[in-house]
Design a protein around this nucleic acid. Structure first.
Length: 721
DNA sequence: GGTCCAACATTTTTT
DNA sequence: ATGTTGGACC
C-alpha cells in the first residue's frame, strides 16, 4: 500500500493529523470522531514516509487496545516492529532492560493490590502502628496518589504537618522498604522508577529517544504526572510526540490523572500543532445531542462543537423501573426484542457504575437465557487457586518474594507452621540468604526440629521447579507446580473441581503464551509480568456473540450498537463518594457522557425507585444528570410492577406469601424470624410485588426484610407479656 | 499444627 | 448477601 492510499477516506482534519510529520501534535478528538483510525493511519504513514516501524512507540490505555492497534497497523502493511503497549507494560519492560541503571533487579515481582495490602500490613506492624488507626487500604490509596504525583517519601514527609500525616510518611518509607527487600514493585513504582530513570540518566534517555523517534500517546487526558514525565522524557529530544485525547472523557482523576497534562500541552510544547476532530461518525444525532446537552453543564471544560451527519435514529429512552429485578427484566426483554428484530447479542452492552451491580443484571440475563460476558479479566487471576499457583512461579522467578513464599510454604499443608516460618525468615535475614537458601543450613537454626524434613523436601521441590523453569516452557512450569507441589492432590481430595478447572485454564493460558513467543523469546518473568498487568477489558471478545457487561470506566474507548446505561440514580451516578466538590461531580458527569457516547444507534438509560444493596433495599431518587437531558429526542418511560408481572416466571412461584397476607400486621407487632429470633415490627410497606418491613431484633438491631422471603411468623403480644 | 466457625468489612472507579 | 480473615478449639 502506498502512503497516499492511506489518506483516502479521511476528512481534512483527520488527514492533517495523519500527515503531520515532525514536531509535537495534539489531537483533540471528540467521541466517535475516528481517533483510532487517525492513530493507526498516522503510525502507518510515518513508517512509510519518514521512519521505520521500530522507531514508533504507541502507548494505549489497555493491552486490548494495544493489541488491536498492532494488528491494524500490520493490516496497513507497514511490517512489524512497531511497539504498542500500555504505560505499565512499557515501563515493566524498560525496567527489566535497564534494571541496573534504574536501581532494580530484572526479575522483580509486580505486586498487585492484595500483595500490596500484605506488604502494607507488615509496614504498619514494623512502625508499631495499628491497622485500626491506619487501614491498609487507605494508607495505600494515599501512597499511591503520592507516587502518581511523583512525590517521593522524603518530599511527602517534608510537606506534612499533622500527626496522622507524619505517620503516613513513615509508613510510605517503610512500605517502600518492605517492597525493596522483596525485590518487588507495585503498579505505581513501575511508573515512578521509569520516570526517575528517564529524568536522572541522560544516557538512557538519549538511547530511548533514538530508539523511539515517534511517540503516540492515546487517552492523554487520563495520564497522571508520572506518566506525563515519562512521555515528556521520551519525547523531549525530537519533540515528535503526538498525544490524543478528549478532556470531556477524563474519568481517572481519582487515580491521579491530571487534566492539565492535555490542557497545557500547547504550553509545554509551544510549537505544537493542534488538530480538532469534532465530527462524530458513531452515533445518531439524538444520542450525540443528548450527550452534548449533558456535558455542557460542566463549567471547567474547553468548549467543543460536536456534530454528526449520521441519519436520524430513534429517541433515546430514559426508563424508570421499580427495583433491581425489574430493571434487569426490562433490559432482558429489550435485548430479546432487539434480537427478534434481527439484532445480535454481540451488539449489546450493559454499563453500570459499580461492579456490585453486575449481579442483578446477570441474574436477569441468565433467567432469560441471554448469553453474556463480563469484563473481569483480573477476577480469574484473583482466585485463590490461581494465586497459589502463581505464587510458586513468582518465588521461582524472584526468590526474595517473601509474600509469595509465605503463601505457598505451607499450601498445601505440609507441616510447616508459623513459628517455623518466622525462625526461617529471621535466620535467612541474619545470614543474608534467601529463605529457600537458608533451608540448606537447617541445623544452624535453633528450634527447628520437627519441621526439618518437611522443609528439606519443600526446598528440593522448589529446586526442581527452578530447573524446570530454566529448561522448560512456561507451560512446563505451571504443570510442574500443579502436579508436584501437591496442589492438585489437595483439590482432588477436597473434590474442588472448580479449582482443577481453573488450574487447567491457567495451563492453557501458559501454553497459549508459549505458542505466541518466537523461539526462546518468552520467559517466566515476562509471562508473570504480562498477567500482572491484565486489565478487566482485556478479557472481552467482540466475537463471542454475547451481551457485554462492564463498568462505565471499562467502557472507555469502546462502542456498541445498543447500550443500556443502568443505575442512573443519585448516589450511584454521581456516586455518593464523588459529591464532595464540583470537580468530582464534573468527573461523574463525564463518566455519564462517556457511557452515552458509546452507543451507535440505541441508547437506554435506566434507573430504579428501590435499589437493593448488601441485602438492604433503599429508596432512591433519579440522578440529577437525568434532568440535564433535552426533551427532544428523549422518551421517558415508567415501568410499573404490574406491567411485568409474569406468572410464567419461576421466581414468582417462590413467593411464599402474598402482600394481602400482611394487611392485618401492625406496627409494634411481635414477630419471630427463623434465625434472628423475636423482633418488633417498626414499619411495613408494599413495594411492587413485594412487601418490605423494618424489624428491630434485640440481638441484631434493625433489619430491613422482604416479607415474602423472610418467613416471619406473627406472635400474639400477650404470649410474651 | 490444623480445622472449623464467626465476626467483619466491603471497592466507586483500575494499572 | 457474600466472601474473607482471625480466633477458638481439637
Amino acid at each position: 500500500m502506498k502512503a497516499e492510499a492511506l489518506l483516502r477516506e479521511l476528512t481534512d482534519a483527520q488527514r492533517q493529523a495523519v500527515t503531520h510529520g515532525d514536531g509535537p501534535l495534539l489531537v483533540l478528538a471528540g467521541p466517535g470522531s475516528g481517533k483510532t483510525r487517525v492513530i493507526t493511519h498516522r503510525a502507518a504513514y510515518l513508517a512509510k514516509t519518514v521512519t521505520e516501524p521500530w522507531h514508533i512507540l504507541a502507548i494505549t490505555f489497555t493491552n486490548k487496545a494495544a493489541n488491536e492497534m498492532a494488528e491494524r497497523v500490520i493490516q496497513l502493511q507497514i511490517g512489524r516492529g512497531m511497539t504498542c503497549c500500555t504505560f505499565h507494560s512499557f515501563c515493566a519492560r524498560l525496567l527489566r532492560a535497564y534494571a541496573e541503571r534504574a536501581g532494580v533487579r530484572p526479575n522483580f515481582s509486580i505486586y498487585d493490590t492484595s500483595d500490596q495490602t500484605s506488604a502494607m500490613k507488615e509496614a504498619i506492624r514494623r512502625c508499631d502502628l495499628s491497622t485500626d488507626n491506619f487501614p491498609p487500604g487507605r494508607a495505600l490509596a494515599t501512597i499511591s496518589r503520592a507516587k502518581n504525583d511523583m512525590i517521593l517519601p522524603e518530599q511527602f514527609a517534608a510537606t506534612v504537618k499533622d500527626w496522622q500525616k507524619k505517620r503516613l510518611a513513615t509508613l510510605y518509607e517503610e512500605y517502600n522498604q518492605v517492597l525493596i527487600e522483596q525485590n518487588a514493585l507495585d503498579f505505581d513504582d513501575l511508573l515512578v522508577k521509569t520516570a526517575l530513570l528517564l529524568g536522572n540518566d541522560p544516557e538512557v534517555r538519549d538511547e530511548l529517544a533514538e530508539r523511539y523517534r515517534y511517540i503516540l500517546v492515546d487517552e492523554y487526558q487520563d495520564t497522571n504526572h508520572a506518566q506525563y514525565l515519562i512521555a515528556r522524557g521520551l519525547g523531549l529530544k525530537y519533540e515528535n510526540l503526538c498525544v490524543t485525547g478528549d478532556p470531556d472523557q477524563s474519568i481517572y482523576g481519582w487515580r491521579g490523572a491530571n487534566l492539565n497534562n492535555i490542557l497545557q500541552f500547547e504550553e509545554d510544547f509551544p510549537n505544537a500543532v493542534v488538530v480538532r476532530l469534532e465530527q462524530n461518525y458513531r452515533s445518531t444525532p439524538q444520542i450525540l445531542a443528548a450527550a452534548d446537552a449533558v456535558i455542557t453543564h460542566n463549567r471547567k471544560r474547553k468548549k467543543k462543537t460536536l456534530f454528526t451527519h449520521n441519519p436520524d435514529g430513534s429517541s433515546i429512552r430514559v426508563v424508570e423501573c421499580e427495583d433491581n429485578q425489574s430493571e434487569g427484566e426490562y433490559i432482558a426483554r429489550q435485548i430479546r426484542e432487539h434480537v427478534e428484530q434481527g439484532g445480535i447479542y454481540g451488539d449489546v452492552a450493559v454499563f453500570y457504575r459499580v461492579n456490585a451491580m453486575s449481579r442483578s443484571i446477570e441474574n436477569a440475563l441468565r433467567s432469560a437465557h441471554i448469553p453474556y460476558q463480563i469484563a473481569r479479566g483480573v477476577e480469574f487471576y484473583n482466585r485463590k487457586e490461581i494465586r497459589d499457583i502463581l505464587a510458586y512461579a513468582r518465588v521461582t522467578a524472584n526468590p526474595l518474594d517473601r509474600i509469595s513464599l509465605q503463601r505457598i510454604i505451607n499450601t498445601p499443608a505440609r507441616g510447616i507452621g508459623k513459628t517455623t516460618v518466622d525462625r526461617l525468615f529471621t535466620h535467612a535475614e541474619a545470614a543474608g540468604k534467601t529463605p529457600l537458601e537458608a533451608i540448606s543450613d537447617l541445623d544452624k537454626i535453633t528450634g527447628i526440629t520437627r519441621a526439618a524434613g518437611a522443609l528439606r523436601s519443600f526446598a528440593q521441590m522448589m529446586i526442581d521447579l527452578a530447573t524446570t523453569a530454566r529448561k522448560g516452557t512456561v507451560q512446563d512450569v505451571v504443570e510442574f507446580i500443579v502436579q508436584r507441589s501437591g496442589l492438585l492432590a489437595m483439590w482432588s481430595g477436597a473434590h474442588d473441581d472448580d479449582a482443577i478447572d481453573n488450574a487447567n485454564e491457567l495451563i492453557n493460558a501458559a501454553a497459549e503464551y508459549d505458542r505466541q513467543q518466537s523461539e526462546g523469546s518468552g520467559s517466566l518473568e515476562e509471562w508473570l509480568q504480562q498477567i500482572s498487568l491484565v486489565s478487566d477489558v482485556d478479557a472481552i471478545d467482540e466475537q463471542t456473540g454475547a451481551v457485554t457487561l462492564m463498568t462505565l470506566h471499562a467502557a472507555k474507548g469502546l462502542e456498541f450498537d445498543t447500550v443500556f446505561l443502568t443505575g442512573v440514580e443519585d448516589g450511584l451516578l454521581p456516586h455518593q463518594r464523588s459529591q464532595e466538590n464540583d470537580a468530582e461531580i464534573e468527573e461523574e458527569r463525564r463518566l455519564f457522557f462517556v457511557g452515552m457516547t458509546r452507543a451507535k444507534r440505541s441508547l437506554t438509560i435506566t434507573s430504579t425507585r428501590w435499589r437493593d444493596f448488601r441485602g438492604m433495599s433503599n429508596r432512591t431518587s433519579p440522578s440529577p444528570f437525568l434532568y440535564e437531558l433535552p426533551d427532544e429526542g428523549v422518551e421517558r418511560i415508567t415501568v410499573d410492577a404490574e406491567d411485568e408481572f409474569d406468572y410464567d416466571d419461576k421466581d414468582e412461584d417462590d413467593l411464599s406469601a402474598k402482600a394481602e397476607d400482611y394487611l392485618s400486621w401492625r406496627r409494634g407487632q411481635l414477630v419471630r424470624h427463623p434465625s434472628f429470633g423475636v423482633g418488633r415490627l417498626l414499619w411495613i410497606k408494599p413495594q411492587g410485588r413485594r412487601t418490605h418491613a423494618g424489624v428491630h431484633f434485640a440481638a441484631y438491631g434493625e433489619k430491613t426484610l422482604v416479607l415474602e422471603y423472610a418467613h416471619l411468623e406473627p406472635i400474639e403480644n400477650d404470649e410474651w407479656e
